[in-house]
């Protein structure tokens, strides 16, 4: 064993700050004493810097798939590559230090201050005190908590604040890869939406490759560049963008899973501006919305006004129009 204090992670050193692809290659996991595999011949690639949401029914193998990446679980067969190298070739400890890990239970260390919690991995990596303090402060800013929180203990934080700290702790050593298992599952809807938004904007600043487990399809649509749907037994049902899944589910299982209202969901992915024909003029009295409005909202405006054509405006000026028929077509099905 090399000294962890002087060792940069396997994926680390040269790669730190640079996103890496995660590739599952024919991965199967069979738990001892169980006939059916929890993961069955899973192959998929998450491109560098993208977020892949793993969705599926309870017991579908989402958590298992995720834990295979940081080797909290070892695969029965197949391989997982990060940045082109098999995770099996790395020392587990150093591997894990380069992979951020956030779980629903958060798992903050109750006897350590928030600052010490966030600084755990940097400390183990042997960073000096100032650097850790500086990093801790930056991360608190990032998750929008006052820096004075560093001195508090986990028991003094609300559930949402604890979840933010869990996120900050996972980001501490700037890992190129993040694994998140229903990270916001225990939060109330308002706090959850807030943290989702914060994570999305944070994701834009710090491009990382993320595997995000959720059983909430709406969360997956919101958070994921790509969505992987697992069916019971751990087989991949479909893998693609939210638009692909909603517009073209491969079978009834996926269609059921994404929901009967998938047309509406699909509309919320696109704005009226994308669909508007700039050459067309709306008839007088037509309802009007700005170009950034989602098609879903546009549709409800049309329905509320009992109109056929929607005027689209950019910076207050008319910029084309969308018809009810076009919206209906965009919803597909």
């Amino acid at each position: 064993m090399t000294d962890p204090a002087t060792q940069e992670g396997p994926v680390g050193a040269s790669h730190r700050g640079e996103a890496l692809a995660i590739e599952f290659r024919h991965v199967t996991k069979r738990y001892p004493g169980q006939d059916a595999p929890a993961i069955d011949d899973l192959s998929l690639t998450v491109p560098p810097g993208e977020t892949c949401c793993l969705v599926g029914p309870s017991g579908g193998g989402k958590t298992t798939a995720m834990k295979l990446v940081n080797r909290l679980i070892e695969p029965t067969s197949g391989d997982i590559l990060i940045g082109g190298r098999s995770v099996l070739t790395y020392d587990v400890t150093t591997l894990r230090r380069d992979i951020g890990y956030v779980i629903q239970q958060v798992g903050l260390f109750p006897h350590m201050t928030i600052g010490a919690n966030i600084g755990t991995i940097p400390r183990l990596l042997g960073w000096d005190k100032e650097r850790i303090a500086e990093r801790t402060g930056r991360l608190l800013d990032l998750v929008r908590l006052d820096r004075s929180y560093a001195k508090r203990y986990p028991a003094q934080l609300s559930g949402g604040q604890q979840q933010r700290i869990g996120l900050a702790r996972a980001l501490a050593a700037d890992p190129p890869v993040m694994l998140m298992d229903e990270p916001f599952g225990a939060l109330d809807p308002i706090t959850r939406a807030e943290i989702q938004d914060e994570f999305l904007s944070l994701e834009n600043e710090i491009r990382k490759t993320v595997i995000f487990v959720t059983h909430d399809i709406d969360e997956a649509i919101k958070m994921g560049d790509k969505i992987a749907v697992l069916r019971p037994g751990g087989r991949l049902a479909q893998y693609g963008s939210a638009d692909e899944l909603l517009g073209d589910p491969v079978d009834d299982f996926v269609a059921d899973f994404v929901g009967a209202d998938r047309g509406l969901k699909r509309l919320s992915l696109r704005s009226v501006g994308e669909l508007a024909d700039p050459g067309r003029e709306a008839p007088p009295g037509a309802p009007s919305v700005s170009a950034g409005t989602s098609l879903r909202v546009g549709l409800s405006v049309l329905l509320a006004a009992n109109a056929e054509v929607l005027e689209v405006t950019k910076e207050g000026r008319p910029a084309g129009a969308v018809t009810l028929a076009e919206i209906r077509e965009a919803a597909g099905s």
């Binding site: 230090r97 779980i103 798992g107 755990t120 869990g166």
Partner: peptide, 15 residues
């Protein structure tokens, strides 16, 4: 100790 706390520690790469 909460199982989640231990799992988080393991996932972070603590020996």
């Amino acid at each position: 100790v909460e199982p989640g706390t231990v799992e988080a520690a393991r996932g972070m790469g603590m020996t």
